[in-house]
Each structure stands twice: as C-alpha cells, then as structure tokens.
Amino acid sequence: MAMHTRRATLTPKVLSYSGLAVVLLIVLIPYGYIALTAFKPAEEIFDVRWLPRVWSLDAWRYAIEFEQFHVYIYNSMIAGLGAAVLALCVAVPGAYVFGRKQFRGKDVMFYIIVMALLFPFVLLVVPFTILWVKIGLYDTMPGLWLAYQVFIIPFAIWILRAYFAELPRFLEECAMVYGCTAFKAFWRVMLPLAKPIITSLMFLAFLVGWNDFLFSNMLTTGQGPRTASVIIYVSAVGGERVEWDVLMVMTLMAGIPPVLLYILAQGQFLKTFAVRSY
C-alpha cells in the first residue's frame, strides 16, 4: 500500500521533471554552443567540437574595439527603456479610462485601438520612414521610441484594461471617501495594485525595443542611434565574409541585458495582491 502511493506520486514527478529537462536542453544547447564558440579562435570556428582547443578573447576584442558593439548595446538599451517609459505614460492612463470610466464611443475606440494589433507592421515601415524624414524624427532616438508604440501601446492597453476593469470599484471609492481626489485614488490605490502587471508590461515593452529590427533598421543610419539587432544582422549578411566568432560574441552580449533585467524584475512579476472581499 505504502509502495503503491509512493509510486503513484513519484511517477508523474519523474515524468514531468524529465520532460522539463528535455525542454531545457533544447533551449540551452544552442546557447551553450554560442557561448563556447565566442571563445574559439577564428581558425577553430568550423571544428565541430564543444570546448575550444585554445581559449581566445580575439572575437571579444574585435567586437568591442573595432565594431564598437558596446555603443550599439547602449543604443538598444536606451531604445528599449524609452519605449517602455513612453508606453507606460500613455497605456496606463489609457487603459484605466477604458477599464473604469464610461464615455460615449468607448467600445468603438477600444476596438479600433486593438485592431491596430492586427495590422501587419511591415506595411507601415515605408510610410513611417517618409513621415519621420519629413517631421525630423528620422535617425533620432525619440523617432524609434515613437515607432515602437504602434505595437506596444495597443497591446499594453488591451492587457491593462482588463486588469483595471476587474479591480473592485469600492477600493477606489473608499479611497475617495477617505480623502483622495479621483486622481489621487488612482495614484495611491489603483496603480500600486497594478504594479506587478505594469512591471511585466514594461519588461515586454523593453524587449520590443531591444529586439526590434524592422523599424530600427529603416529609421536609423550608421551615424544615428543604430541598435544592436541591426548590427548583428549586418554582420551576418552584410560583408563578404561572416565572422562567426564575432557574431557569437554579439549575440551573447545582446542576450545578457534582458536576462539581467528579468532577474531584477522577477520579484515583481510573481507578486500579486490578493484583492479579497469577505
């Protein structure tokens, strides 16, 4: 009997862990290979083996000193952070109004905004470029921030609206009875309650800016705020010869900041406030 119950609880555990392990390996093996290749000297690149025979930092030196890749990483960082902050400033109040206030044409406006998500962004690249040149946003950082919002803001409003709509009305009213203006009630009560989901959305918005290639490629030049993803692309397809080891270094460098950011923000993602009524 005892054996039986232990078996019964053990088997699914073993199964789920081995399943997870397989998934983890699928994800980790390419990354591991990238990481190790970044330390191979140029002549070893095409040797199919895991560990480099000679550990070399040549590719790193080249990526930073010659390609100035850290500058582009910095650009990506600014692009991502700016996109996230701008999205936040617009989407949070917007979602709040859509979620909790009544006004004429609300539903229609909301559907139009969400519909923007269905529009293929590729089609926007050319008009955007023309427009950006005309109004002086071409090849500027704010130009990039603004362009990303086409995708970020509808998405963020869509997610946040549902969240705000579900927060109990009496919490806000209670704040107002106990001395808050409508805005202060939003600021002191609703916003803190939405903090976990806002943090998650900011992270996603950052990733959009960080990973974007389409707009970053079209709206910037080599002299302007070019981002890392564009440089990686150019190194992969641009020259007469692909420097694989350098490419691996770049990939690695571009991959680390989001991970660090995720680890920093992780506590927030997991935190949810139990909004209980008795």
């Binding site: 009496f170 009213e173 209670c174 704040a175 203006t181 309650l193 209980r276 008795y278």
Partner: peptide
Amino acid sequence: QPKDRNLAFVFQDTALFPHLSIRRNISF
C-alpha cells in the same frame, strides 16, 4: 466631493487596501 465631506463610509465588502499594512490602512 466625497473627500471634502468628512464622512466615513464602511462598505459591505471590506474595502481594505490590499497593498497596505493594517496600520497604513487605518491611518489612510
């Protein structure tokens, strides 16, 4: 405005602010 009336309302569903401690709730 509600905030200018100096009336205290207690709701049927306890509207305690979930993100604040009991102390901060009372002193809100």
